[in-house]
């Protein structure tokens, strides 16, 4: 018998209580020092695994039985509470659903944020490039970065539509556009400007006062 085969047989001894060495292995061990040394080492390990295979001590088993029966009694008395609060599966399911909803919200909100930021940047670039001499356009006046600027007849945006006809739905996005466009007098010009930037289609505004 080869040493490798003998060692595999010896390995079984470490974990299987019932396993014993067959005669052929025993004979090999008598003539092979290396395998015999391996056998001794495995025997030591066997002592440890056999100790781990012994039952752990259950202290005060009567108390455990009592606790279990009491817990059953409580569970029977409060089935609704148990169903609601101790159902870990439901809690886990809700947690997962909330996490998924958060991810979806971040993606949807992120896409819209990107579209608006991108379009607003184009709007800003375009407006700064256009001459201010044209009294009808007066584009630079349209772009005011500070939304807190006190302007009489404050402009409130009702609806913003992208070129692809998609409407900006979130108020926070509308507020960002509002921070740029604040001049009620230039309604028409704003929409001309928007079309020219190739980003927005239309902005409908109403005077909040």
């Amino acid at each position: 018998m080869k040493c490798e085969t003998v060692k595999k047989k010896i390995d079984q001894l470490i974990f299987e209580e019932s396993s014993t060495l067959i005669e052929e292995v025993r004979k090999h061990l008598e003539i092979c020092e290396q395998c015999e040394a391996y056998h001794q080492r495995c025997n030591e390990m066997r002592k440890v695994t056999s100790m781990l295979q012994k039952s752990p001590i259950l202290a005060d088993p009567e108390k455990l039985t009592e606790d279990i029966l009491l817990a059953i009694e409580n569970a029977d008395q409060n089935p609704a509470i148990n169903q609601l609060y101790s159902s870990e599966k439901v809690i886990r399911l809700i947690t997962k659903a909330l996490a998924a909803a958060s991810v979806i919200l971040v993606i949807v909100f992120g896409i819209e944020q990107y579209q608006v930021v991108n379009s607003v940047s184009k709007l800003e670039t375009y407006s700064s490039a256009v001459s201010t001499e044209n009294p009808y356009v007066s584009l630079k006046k349209l772009v005011i970065y500070n939304a807190g600027t006190n302007i009489s007849g404050e402009t409130k945006i009702d609806e913003i539509t992208f070129l692809n006809q998609k409407k900006i739905s979130t108020q926070i996005m509308q507020a960002r556009i509002s921070s740029i466009i604040t001049d009620r007098e230039n309604d028409e010009n704003i929409n001309r400007l928007l079309a020219a930037t190739g980003s927005f289609y239309r902005i409908n505004m109403k005077n909040s006062h």
Binding site: S55, P56, L58, P61, L64, T65, I68, L69
Partner: peptide, 9 residues
């Protein structure tokens, strides 16, 4: 419970 709690433990 009494019979199997040790095995479960």
């Amino acid at each position: 419970v009494k019979k199997y709690q040790q095995l479960a433990f």
